[in-house]
Write a protein that binds this DNA or RNA. Structure first.
Length: 304
DNA sequence: ATGGACACCTGTGGGC
DNA sequence: TGCCCACAGGTGTCCA
């Protein structure tokens, strides 16, 4: 479900409450949500209880909370929301949320809160992972609240293969475009490849391609550098606009940490618009089955 | 290198 | 009302 704008909305909501908070208790209601945790459930709980949260960092669709004891331990709580994950920040008296899988109780400035990891499909999950220095020694991800220092330049091992995203201060658009020019694969497949550029999923790929008038299966190598620059300009603008609107919600699946929906769905021009007229030319938007999912595009504006 | 199939899951909505 | 099918914002792995 969530792509970069939705995950960033969660990160931005979480950061002020959880930075410098102390974890008091952890409840694992659904062990499958720890599928990617290398240890046992008991070990997961033990690694968290009594620790301090140093910050909240995001790269692409991955989030992590570096941990302290209280000094940095070199470990982080890594989270991915999968297709249906949510992180809700509640006070303990707030009614239970359906499909809650893990609850992390913490105390921040003397007030008790719960970090509730809610996930319908259990494709998302939490894990404790080791941090290691980034290759270039620069900030590992997006965390504007924190100035450069030791742990911000470290990345969880399980996230190291994820490329920087377009909102990352160290994102190198020129290098990404150079790489794309060497690929014969279709442009949408490349946009969704988190090892090339991260954060883009099915919604924002379709939206960016629509705005750039590119057919999704067009081979990367035959798109000009100028056109790819235009595409990445649109990717950036769309991601920024979506973050500003709190992400895209069209059902109960995406919520911010307060349980509220984002409203970027009102701005969509391609994704989920099957059968509706293209906002540019009036031709009906089409959906094609593609890679076990759907691709939405205007057959007139986005020619093969 | 590339792409397809599939595994991991639950829930919802449409058609009959 | 029930049943079956299609479909859903992702990632990782295996195999031709």
């Amino acid at each position: 479900m969530p792509e970069l704008p939705e995950v960033e909305t969660v990160r931005a909501g979480l950061a002020p409450a959880i930075t410098n908070a102390n974890i008091t208790k952890v409840e694992v209601l659904e062990p499958r949500s720890l599928r990617r945790h290398p240890g046992t459930v008991a070990n997961f709980v033990a690694e968290l209880e009594g620790k301090r949260v140093l910050g909240c960092v995001r790269r692409g669709k991955f989030l992590w909370l570096p941990l302290g004891n209280p000094e940095p331990t070199g470990l982080a709580l890594v989270g991915h929301l999968g297709m249906s994950g949510q992180i809700l920040l509640r006070t303990p008296i707030f009614e239970p949320d359906k499909l809650t899988r893990v609850i992390i109780h913490f105390e921040s400035a003397g007030v008790a809160y719960e970090f509730r990891f809610v996930d319908q499909r259990i494709f998302g999950g939490l894990a404790i992972d080791h941090l290691s220095a980034t290759e270039d020694g620069r900030s590992a991800g997006f965390c504007p609240e924190i100035a450069e220092d030791g742990w911000i330049n470290s990345i969880p091992q399980s996230v190291a293969h994820i490329a920087r995203d377009p909102l990352d201060a160290n994102f190198d658009r020129t290098a990404v475009i150079r790489k794309l020019r060497t690929k014969n694969t279709g442009i949408k497949r490349a946009l969704l490849d988190q090892g090339i550029v991260s954060g883009i999923g099915n919604i924002y790929a379709d939206e960016s391609l629509w705005r750039s008038k590119l057919y999704y299966d067009r081979p990367c190598s035959e798109i000009s550098v100028a056109k790819l620059n235009e595409l990445f300009e649109h990717v950036y603008e769309i991601l920024v606009a979506a973050v500003k609107q709190g992400g895209t919600s069209f059902d109960e699946q995406y919520k911010n940490v307060n349980g509220e929906s984002g409203y970027f769905s009102q701005t969509l021009n391609a994704y989920g618009q099957t059968g509706l007229p293209c906002a540019r030319c009036g031709k009906l938007i089409r959906r094609e089955a593609w890679a076990n999912r759907g691709s939405h595009f205007c057959p007139k504006c986005q020619r093969r």
